[in-house]
């Protein structure tokens, strides 16, 4: 049975018809062709699918598309504004926070969520916040530095 949904994704309203069992990540990737959000596991563990649902980081593999009806969704494709990179994107590039790039969108979405609630996280707080995001390439070392870079930049911008 199909369900009608209306979701605001990255500032654009989308209408769609989905099966109840359709996962939000699948809706984003298959219906909207927003393939920056990735699927890395089937146990809600790895965080590659992290997006923002109404402003909070969630794992879009563990949310039904129908649950996003009426919601605001931000994906990695919505991080940059008017072609200008978000500080977190800049941080990942400047500090070599990515290698293969597969976990990167989810990492950045979690990092943005962290920085919203804690503008000046310590290294320990950053590592703690990344509990639900796996990276196999970087050893997390430069991911931590990338988030510190973004925090610094965002604080500078608002100061």
């Amino acid at each position: 049975m199909k369900n009608k949904i209306s979701v605001n994704v990255n500032g654009k309203q989308y209408e769609g018809e989905v099966e109840g069992r359709e996962l939000l990540v699948n809706f984003l990737r298959e219906h909207l062709s927003l393939t920056g959000t990735h699927i890395g596991c089937d146990t809600s563990s790895c965080g590659a699918c992290t997006i923002h649902l109404n402003g909070h980081a969630v794992k879009s593999c563990t949310v039904l598309a129908v649950q996003a009806d009426g919601a605001e969704v931000t994906t990695v494709e919505g991080l940059a504004t008017n072609g200008e990179l978000h500080p977190i994107q800049e941080g990942f590039k400047e500090e070599h926070g990515l290698q293969c790039g597969f976990c990167t969108p989810g990492m950045m979405m979690t990092a943005v969520d962290l920085l919203k609630s804690n503008a000046n996280p310590t290294e320990h707080e950053i590592r703690d916040a990344l509990e639900g995001n796996f990276c196999r390439c970087t050893g997390y070392h430069n991911i931590v530095k990338s988030i510190q870079y973004a925090a610094k930049k965002m604080n500078g911008a608002t100061a």
Binding site: G36, E77, H96, G101, T104
Partner: peptide, 21 residues
């Protein structure tokens, strides 16, 4: 030198096999 490939990955434009339709 900062990586030239990063731009597509940090903007969600990487093209992995499962992204191909």
């Amino acid at each position: 030198v900062k990586r030239v490939e990063d731009k597509r990955f940090i903007t969600g434009q990487g093209n992995y096999t499962d992204d191909i339709k």
